[in-house]
């Protein structure tokens, strides 16, 4: 798991070879480029985490974008466009939020 996301991190740095999530494919918040808009498809992970995120206003269907990504395996900064809030999420947690691309008119 750990090696996996390190590889992802590296790939992102060396050139823009990010695999964009396909229409039906899901992608975790860790894998998407900053600045683009995505839709939350699913929140994985235990009930505690799940409910916490719901309470903070992060629901499936919400539009989100990564504001930026801290270096050194730090947390990521996620902006929820639907409720206009921002939260910092540790990498382990961001990894459990699955997003999908949005079609033009959903914005």
């Amino acid at each position: 798991m750990l090696r996996d996301h390190k590889a992802m991190f590296g790939r992102k740095r060396n050139g823009q070879k990010i695999v964009k999530p396909t229409l039906e494919g899901l992608c975790s918040l860790l894998e998407v480029p900053a600045g683009q808009i995505f839709k939350i498809a699913e929140i994985r992970g235990g009930q505690g985490l799940h409910r916490r995120l719901l309470a903070l206003g992060f629901h499936p269907g919400d539009l989100v974008t990564l504001d930026n990504e801290a270096i050194m395996n730090g947390p990521v900064l996620v902006r929820n466009l639907t409720s206009d809030t921002r939260i910092g999420l540790g990498r382990g947690i961001a990894q459990k939020i699955m997003v999908e691309t949005v079609t033009g008119d959903e914005r």
Binding site: L49, R52, L53, L56, P75, L77, T85, R86, I87, G88, L89, G90, R91, G92, I93
Partner: peptide, 8 residues
């Protein structure tokens, strides 16, 4: 420690 969840 669990990961960070903090509203900014």
């Amino acid at each position: 420690s669990p990961g960070l969840i903090l509203e900014i």
